[in-house]
């Protein structure tokens, strides 16, 4: 399935692009992370410590074990610092 994957803050800088469309077989977020990590070293570096990252599926905060069925957009980012 095709999925829009977007990155923010230092994760965007480390991966080097704000987002991309990926073709994936992953069933859940963790599976998608595993696929991305296998691609290139910069992805492996960016996703090295998942406890330092947050994920949103279809613009709603989710867990790394969240299923990707019905997902159109997955976002990865560090903990938010609003306010």
């Amino acid at each position: 399935m095709k999925l829009d994957v977007v990155y923010f803050a230092w994760l965007r800088e480390r991966i080097g692009i704000p987002g991309e469309t990926v073709e994936t077989e992953a069933r859940d977020v963790a599976g998608l992370v595993a696929e991305l990590t296998r691609r290139e070293e910069r992805y492996a570096q960016a996703f090295r410590d998942l406890s330092a990252l947050r994920v949103a599926v279809n613009q709603e905060l989710a867990d790394f074990d969240a299923p990707l069925s019905g997902a159109r957009e997955v976002a990865f980012f560090p903990p938010m610092t609003g306010g």
């Binding site: 980012f77 938010m80 609003g82």
Partner: peptide
């Protein structure tokens, strides 16, 4: 304010004269 701080998707980067860094939660 409490929710905006850590549940609204904003990220702050401080750019100083001696370099830039992302504000950590």
């Amino acid at each position: 304010m409490d929710y905006l701080k850590s549940r609204a998707p904003f990220w702050k980067k401080e750019v100083g004269r001696s370099g830039a860094c992302w504000v950590e939660s």
